[in-house]
């Protein structure tokens, strides 16, 4: 069976290998930005690439529990990997935005306050901080049920990130809408379980 085969392989793949593979784009993108591979205006291109990878990782993270529930594919051990990597890419995305793009603390602050799409992007990042800080075994044991509830923050983070992408686009563009739709669909799958838990 395909599912057994996937599960077998997944058991053998160490998470550190996934971290390494998924961090390869960082030096590659920086090299491309320096050598013209990201086009004539590399700052926005780099910002956008990092943001898009972060968004993809958020989506990958959201896919993991439905994959097990509906198909029996067990990739649970990679869920934390996806989350930590997503946080890493969001942090890099913001660093490029603040340092290379906006270039001034005053303007960074002004943008966060005045520009709603940046405000919600920043909100998503801030909500990710406690998740990143508690993404270790000790925190899971320590916080127990609180940890589970805390990590439900992933859902608002996903929605805010998707809306951030749609909102920053000019005109009616397909790609950001596809991302947001996928995120909303993955969250919709969870609604029945959440409702049952709240009711119970």
């Amino acid at each position: 069976m395909l599912v057994d085969r996937i599960n077998q392989v997944a058991r053998k793949v160490p998470t550190w290998a996934v971290y390494i593979v998924y961090l390869i784009p960082v030096p590659v993108l920086l090299y491309m930005a320096q050598t013209g591979g990201l086009g004539r205006e590399p700052i926005n291109a780099l910002e956008r690439e990092l943001g898009e990878i972060a968004l993809q990782l958020v989506i990958i993270g959201l896919c993991i529990s439905p994959l097990r529930r509906f198909f029996g594919v067990n990739l649970i051990k990679f869920r934390r990997t996806a989350g930590v990597l997503a946080f890493t890419y969001v942090a890099l995305h913001m660093l490029v935005w603040a340092v290379l793009d906006v270039q001034s603390i005053d303007r960074v602050v002004a943008d966060i306050i005045k520009r709603p799409y940046i405000t919600i992007g920043m909100a998503a990042f801030i909500l990710m901080v406690p998740l990143a800080l508690t993404s270790n075994n000790r925190s899971v044991r320590w916080l127990g049920a609180v940890w589970r509830r805390l990590h439900l923050l992933t859902y608002p983070v996903a929605i805010l990130s998707g809306v951030h992408f749609v909102w920053l686009s000019k005109g009616f563009q397909l790609e950001p809408l596809v991302y947001l739709t996928v995120i909303l669909a993955l969250l919709a799958l969870r609604v029945p379980t959440l409702v049952r838990k709240v009711a119970a």
Partner: peptide, 15 residues
């Protein structure tokens, strides 16, 4: 959605 007070001249690279 963004400030128009400043601009970036294309072609200046990453910095």
């Amino acid at each position: 959605r963004w400030s128009q007070a400043s601009e970036r001249l294309v072609g200046g690279g990453l910095f």
